[in-house]
Amino acid sequence: MSIQSEELRTFVAVVEAGSLSAAAEGLEQTTSGVSRALSRLEEKLGASLLTRTTRRMELTEEGRVLLEQARDILASMEQAEEAVRMRTQKPVGRLRVDAAVPFMLHCVVPHVGAFREAYPGIELELTTNDRFIDLVEQRTDIAIRIGELQDSTLHAKPLSSARLNIVASPDYLARHGTPASVEDLERHRLIGFSHLESLNHWPLLHAGGDRYPARPGIRASSGETIRQLALHGQGIAALSSFVSDADIAAGRLVKLLEPAYSGYRQKISAVYYRNTQLSKRISCFLDFLQCKL
């Protein structure tokens, strides 16, 4: 008996999810149904694809060979389907978009409804990572990145840029005072990033240059966590304008040291691998998002 695409899709889902139950949830099937599909595939191939224990599962040598081929087959099927559908000039299919948590929450999520209304045939799959990811490994079509780009193997589209605001809550300033100069920051509680030290060099003009080396007393990996810490009066932070402008306008945060701002702006870019079958979905999403930024 020949194997079926759904069996391959189930096998790939189990490997990527790490367990039958997680794969079943992602496929919206029962765990027993996924198990039966995997068993049928192994029976048809006459080979064991996974070794299962109570704690984990591992690919056999045959499983590793099949996984590489199965991914290529499923990708080719998706591309073939998209190629036919593109003839109607209506973008359809799944589009996987990844961004840091703050950008996703403040710049993508508010516009999802309007995008779906404009392009009902595109199925959005949104993921969040506060560090750069491997697009192929994470099966991501587009990643929105903030700052300078390093990976030259990717195609990039500039979307916008963002100021960095130095901010604190009114509660913090009432308890600790308002810094009158950049040098005053030495006497304050600062909040910064834990994973990229370059993000803790704030764009402020001072005696040492145009980048102030902040020494955070609290560090976090996510800009949204830093925002929440600032809102809860835990210190002074440097936050992108798309994260902090609404809080400043509402009085939840106060902008500090504006005369010392260097004028630096963070680049906002979309990166992706060139794929002609995905190009219409990608261009629709990026053109839409760029109009909103």
Rank of each mutant, 00 (worst) to 15 (best):
H155L: 15
R145H: 13
G26H: 07
P158K: 13
D184P: 15
L164K: 10
S32G: 09
A246H: 14
E25I: 10
R36S: 13
R85T: 01
S269R: 08
G18I: 08
V167H: 04
A156P: 00
G263A: 04
L45Y: 03
S39A: 15
R9W: 06
F132S: 14
R96Q: 12
I133T: 06
A80H: 04
D151R: 02
L190S: 05
S283V: 08
L199R: 15
L135P: 03
Q234V: 12
S19E: 09
A220R: 08
Q266M: 10
T140F: 05
A75S: 11
D98R: 02
V97E: 02
S269W: 13
A37T: 14
R64Y: 01
L20K: 00
P120C: 11
R265N: 03
V92G: 09
A238D: 00
M57P: 10
L20M: 11
Q228I: 06
T60Y: 02
A230C: 07
L286W: 05
H201M: 09
T127R: 04
R9P: 04
A83L: 14
R96Y: 13
A80Y: 06
D210A: 12
P216H: 05
H155P: 07
G93I: 05
H106Y: 10
Q277F: 11
T88R: 12
L27P: 03
S161C: 09
E148W: 14
L50K: 06
M77L: 13
S262N: 03
E25K: 10
L185M: 10
I236L: 01
L286D: 01
D134G: 00
G209C: 07
R189E: 08
Q234C: 15
R55E: 11
S160I: 00
V243A: 11
Q29M: 15
D171T: 13
L159E: 15
F103N: 00
L59R: 03
A118K: 13
Y272V: 05
L59Q: 07
E125D: 14
L66W: 07
S19A: 11
G63D: 01
E224L: 11
D134C: 03
S21N: 10
A13V: 05
V167L: 05
E148G: 02
A260C: 14
L27R: 02
I236G: 10
V112Q: 12
E125Y: 15
Y264P: 08
A24P: 03
R56I: 14
I3M: 11
F285S: 01
T178N: 10
A24Q: 02
V97K: 00
L49S: 01
F242Y: 15
A260Y: 13
S222I: 02
S283T: 12
D141M: 06
I226Y: 01
R211L: 08
H201S: 10
D130Y: 02
L50E: 06
D151I: 02
V271A: 02
I146L: 14
F288L: 05
